[in-house]
């Protein structure tokens, strides 16, 4: 196949090109997931990628691992079952912003609270892309969407703070532009024994970009370049963080993991 070695190794190349629009950030973010798995040299047969419904959730269909495309918002519930049935597997969940925080909001907070060893990656494009550009829980205040013709009056979720507050033990954020940072965060997330939450800011040139006059995909990438700043820099000088989007590693605090705690009880009762 006429593609790079890494694409040939980890993608179902007969399924490509993918369904995403020209310039969609999901393709770039999916590549970061693949590169992170390649860097960690994980056995393909021991990796499971689970997704729900939405643009982002098309990703596992193109990836050559054990993959599962589940119902809307319930990817984490299926993933919890997989992890409990076979704790050796590396379970990675790819969800969208609406899938993770609206339809599957309760699954997200409770999976985080349990601290089960699952790596959750959210492709956040600020909108429901697949269904026609309705506003999602992460559409910024005042921005336009199909169902917010005069501007969105809801306040957006800060997904990383939500996950951290709910009990995730590894939390980070990067963007489709900051692909190498995203790759590094996913690597550390997979290595973390517990619930890891990584938010990848994506771009939707078709709906969010067009509705809000954000320009072409290159301009939307450049927006991330200009307006994102690493949390470490803001910690040193808080003034740098004004009107910026924070990226980088936010929280890394390993705690007792759910499967291990569960095994302790099984061992205790079996004497």
């Amino acid at each position: 196949m006429n593609c790079s070695e890494i694409t040939n190794q980890y993608y179902r190349v007969n399924r490509l090109p993918h369904i995403w629009c020209a310039g969609c950030g999901h393709g770039t973010l999916t590549n970061t997931v693949v590169r992170a798995i390649d860097k960690l040299k994980l056995n393909k047969d021991e990796v499971v990628i689970v997704s729900g419904i939405g643009c982002s959730s098309r990703a596992p269909g193109y990836l050559d691992f054990n993959t599962l495309h589940t119902t809307h918002g319930r990817a984490l519930a299926f993933a919890t079952g997989i992890k409990l049935a076979n704790p050796k597997l590396h379970v990675i969940v790819i969800m969208g912003d609406g899938d993770s925080s609206a339809i599957g909001g309760n699954h997200l907070i409770h999976a985080a609270r349990r601290n089960i060893d699952i790596t959750t990656i959210v492709f956040n494009n600020n909108i429901y892309g697949m269904t026609g550009g309705q506003f999602s829980p992460t559409t910024p205040y005042g921005d336009l969407a199909t169902t917010a013709a005069y501007g969105n009056i809801d306040k957006p979720f800060d997904l990383c703070s939500l996950a951290q507050g709910a009990g995730a033990t590894y939390v980070g954020r990067a963007t489709a532009y900051h692909a190498l940072l995203m790759q590094k965060l996913i690597e550390k997330g997979i290595q973390n024994k517990g619930f890891s939450f990584i938010e990848g800011l994506s771009l939707c040139p078709t709906y969010y970009g067009r509705k809000n006059k954000k320009g072409n995909p290159f301009k939307m990438h450049s927006f991330f370049k200009e307006y994102c700043i690493d949390k470490k820099l803001v910690d040193k000088d808080p003034e740098k963080g004004i009107n910026k989007i924070l990226i980088g590693e936010f929280y890394n605090n390993p705690q007792p993991e759910y499967i291990e705690s569960y095994q302790v009880i099984i061992d205790m009762l079996q004497g």
Binding site: M1, N2, L16, P17, C21, A22, G23, P217, F218, H221
Partner: peptide
């Protein structure tokens, strides 16, 4: 520098960067 032209959607991100 190689290409797989049938997969290209002409988004222009590579051209910009």
């Amino acid at each position: 520098l190689l290409q797989n032209i049938p997969w290209c959607k002409g988004c222009g991100v590579c051209v910009g960067f």
